[in-house]
Nucleic acid binder design. Structure first.
Lengths: 336, 336
DNA sequence: TTGAAAGCGCTACCAA
DNA sequence: TTGGTAGCGCTTTCAA
């Protein structure tokens, strides 16, 4: 930087200011300095800038998996919401494992992020401590925990499961199943299953067709295998909700292979509002979670918390942003 | 850190060493210091560490989109390959736009990454300059550019297109189409189309069924729309390769809606080895690109370049890692 | 194995 | 609008 200063005939301090948008520097020196920097191939060192200003410009984010269109959309929304703020997302993947989340959060904390976003409301004890003591805004997404660490942006997965169950029962189905996975790994998925089961019980229906697999059921092949298992065990099954649209599609293919017609012989619903649900034939009934919106709303929370004009106002209070989910009724549950 | 030192009764320097795995410190003081750190809730500041040691631990990576299973798999492979190295991936999305890539690369350079990974071999002039002058290993992935900046890990997209064309021509199809998108935005996609077209010409077939759309054709809906357009224009089309398995699936659904049987009435092939290609009925012939492997191989290149025991050996020479692609023949192009 | 001094490259703060 | 001083929290280097 001092080289640039020398070349431009100013002090290093002026260079520092000229290279930042908000600092005061005359347009003429700005231009002079930019040219000098360009000529020398100088690139600002934000590591040093961060150390000095205590602002790293990082937002640390953990999601369970990058191979998931829902979380991908959230990150897309978050990125777009943070676009003009100069904030950089530091992304990490927990592989649906809260121990791994703890490791990631610890590593991220070393980077001194200005905000931390974690997926879900279930964390290790140590991870909660880390987050609570981080000194920066913490946002839990994709859920609305009953005891949030600070802010949360999401929806009730229990209610989502309830909504789909009520829909299927209202449709007149009696023997209703749920295809989902290992409940320990994915708290949000098991919450949906729980809500689903609640409704079946409340409305006097059997819950013996639930939680088929001990393994996660996220992809198409797992959905197909789970459906095979379910139909073999309960051939009288009339309707099934799947943990995701991908497993719903796999389940639907499994039915097709067996000569079962969807929805005439068996109704299938998914979750997540994936592309496949709108493009498969028949189209698959799904519950759209507002994944992209979770990202944009999270960005808003971060920016409002980081705005320095609200140091002691009510804005600092924990935010709880509820994202609307939407049940999209499609052919797969709706016989003509 | 000096607080920790005081509590543990040692100098800050000893704390610094005790907290790093490779530094020399006795196990007893290590333990003492770890306890003190834990008690104070001290977390190392890697911003300051990075400034001092000139090692940030970052690997900057740009991919076109997070909503793409292929690139997601590459990142997964890269992450896993870098797992034990302490290197953190700094991920950015270019939205298939090299101008945006330039912006990202410039922002990333400020973070002083220890290596830079970019997708594709086409960049803006300025971006190439940045990368070449970065002073750290640069790896271009998902392609094998004829004039690489430094290292490359990928495959020839032209050859991939040729392979699929040859396969379809060998199958006996004559009126063959290609469903793809705007060639300016996605150089890799247009390379595949180019290779595809070359073969058709070489083997004396018409190329009038190529490059249907000016818009990108990446998702299912776009594939369906492009297929509708193609069949309306060329009802005699016998076989089609699509830019991705997603568009291939959409195209297949479009055929199903029209009462065209796949592959009896029209054969369809995709690209990318997506889950859907193996789970759709019929299964879709595809070209697997080795996406995950691109990630793991890229990690290997980075680690070998960063190893300090090869300062002047041949390892420093630009690497060019060719990833094997595999044509998976499936029912969608193979009438019984 | 441990400690002291110096400085990484920048920005906050105060002064002009 | 510009410049000087001090220091962000750590690691490198050298010495003990």
């Amino acid at each position: 930087m001092s080289d640039v200063a020398k070349l431009a005939g100013v002090s290093p301090m002026t260079v520092s200011r000229a290279l930042r948008p908000n600092a005061s520097a005359s347009e003429s020196t700005r231009k002079k300095i930019r040219e000098a920097a360009d000529q020398l191939g100088y690139v600002l060192d934000s590591t040093a800038a961060g150390l000095s200003s205590r602002k790293t410009g990082f937002v640390a984010v953990t999601i369970p998996s990058i191979n998931n269109a829902n979380f991908a959309n959230t990150i897309r929304g978050l990125n777009e919401g943070l676009q003009d703020s100069g904030l950089q997302v530091l992304l990490g993947f927990t592989d649906y494992n809260i121990k791994e989340e703890e490791r990631l959060v610890e590593a991220f904390l070393r980077r001194r992020p200005e905000a931390i976003v974690v997926t879900g409301g279930v964390h290790t004890e140590r991870c909660r401590r880390y987050l609570a003591a981080s000194g920066v805004p913490v946002i839990e997404i994709w859920d609305l925990p009953s005891s949030p660490i600070e802010h949360s942006v999401g929806f009730s997965n229990v209610k989502a499961g309830r909504a789909m169950a009520n829909y299927l029962v209202d449709k007149g189905y009696k023997n209703i199943g749920f295809i989902g996975g290992n409940t320990k790994q994915d708290a949000r998925g098991s919450d949906r299953c729980e809500g689903f089961a609640e409704v079946l019980e409340e409305r006097g229906l059997s819950t013996e067709r639930l939680r088929i697999s001990e393994e996660p059921v996220r992809n198409m092949a797992q959905g197909a295998a789970a459906m095979d298992y379910l139909i073999d065990k309960h051939p009288d099954t009339q309707a099934v909700m799947c943990a995701s649209d991908l497993s719903a599609f796999g389940a639907m293919m499994s039915c097709q292979r067996r000569g079962l017609k969807v929805p005439e012989d068996i109704a299938i619903a998914g979750f997540g509002g994936y592309d496949i649900s709108a493009n498969a034939i028949p189209q698959i009934t799904t519950l759209e979670a507002g994944d992209y919106q979770i990202g944009t709303e999270t960005a808003k929370v971060i920016l409002s918390q980081l705005a320095d004009d609200n140091d002691e106002t009510e804005e600092r209070a924990p935010q709880r942003i509820k994202i609307a989910t939407q049940l999209l009724e499609r052919e797969s549950t709706s016989p003509k």
